[in-house]
């Protein structure tokens, strides 16, 4: 097994972990964290795929940098919505999932 395969499989496992957290977590901030983990795993998988052959390919790298910045701005908006929702309802879970 090469190092690239190792990073790709790590990325694949991160995507699975993130997906589990996104579905299973109840606290919405934890869901946003899990979503970031999922995206990060996807970047790692793509980056490992782009690094095969001779040396890293700049095109996936540029896409990943774009993706990291967009992930932050989407997270900031999601956090803003979450705080606004918690201000109205007093909790950080979805109403249908309240125990």
């Amino acid at each position: 097994m090469t190092a690239l395969t190792l990073y790709a499989l790590t990325g694949a496992a991160l995507i699975g972990l993130g997906l589990y957290g996104l579905i299973a977590a109840r606290h919405l901030l934890r869901r946003i964290v899990a979503f970031n983990l999922l995206g990060s795993g996807l970047f790692l998988y793509l980056g490992a795929a782009g690094a095969r052959g001779d040396g890293p390919d700049p095109v996936p790298q540029a896409l990943i940098i774009t993706g990291i910045v967009v992930a932050l701005s989407a997270s900031a908006l999601a956090v803003g919505l979450l705080v606004a929702g918690a201000r109205l309802s007093g909790r950080a879970t979805l109403p249908e999932e309240a125990e």
Binding site: G47, P56, I64
Partner: peptide, 11 residues
């Protein structure tokens, strides 16, 4: 380690 220093800085 993957040789993507630009991405490492951003991350």
């Amino acid at each position: 380690r993957l040789g993507a220093v630009d991405v490492a800085l951003a991350e």
